[in-house]
């Protein structure tokens, strides 16, 4: 399935009922060199819009919000030693966590790729 996006610059890619979540190319550029990522614990139940992870660069810190509701099934442990993956491959190796979705219809409220591109463009 293709990716969906939030206006907080998170992406989600869903396979089956599990979604993988990370931050977009635009977001990593805005942050600069990522130095630390805190990912949620496995088993945590999160609601759409809830703050679940933190990403930090030298000069900025951002909360990552759950794009949809669900239960955390995996956090990207590799980011602890290689936070730079978020800069290098924000939609690949730099993923943050995986959620087992509780309500797939929530995906409908998110932007598709074209919508997100237009959104980023509108930010100037």
């Amino acid at each position: 399935m293709s990716m969906k996006y939030t206006n907080e610059h998170e992406w989600i890619r869903v396979e089956g009922d599990v979604g993988t979540i990370g931050i977009t190319q635009y977001a990593q550029e805005q942050l600069g060199d990522v130095v630390f990522v805190e990912v949620p614990a496995v088993g945590r139940k999160v609601a759409k819009g809830e703050s679940v992870a933190v990403v930090e660069s030298v000069k900025a810190a951002s909360d990552i919000y759950a794009p949809v509701s669900g239960e955390v099934v995996e956090g990207n442990a590799a980011l602890a030693d290689a936070p730079g993956d978020v800069n290098a491959e924000p939609t690949g190796k730099g993923w943050f966590f995986k959620l087992k979705l509780s309500d797939k219809s929530e995906l409908d409220g998110l932007m598709d790729e074209a919508g997100y591109e237009a959104f980023v463009k509108s930010l100037g």
Partner: peptide, 12 residues
């Protein structure tokens, strides 16, 4: 680790 601090994290 200044992202812990007020001038960046403000109310958090």
């Amino acid at each position: 680790l200044s992202t812990r601090e007020q001038h960046i994290r403000r109310e958090k």
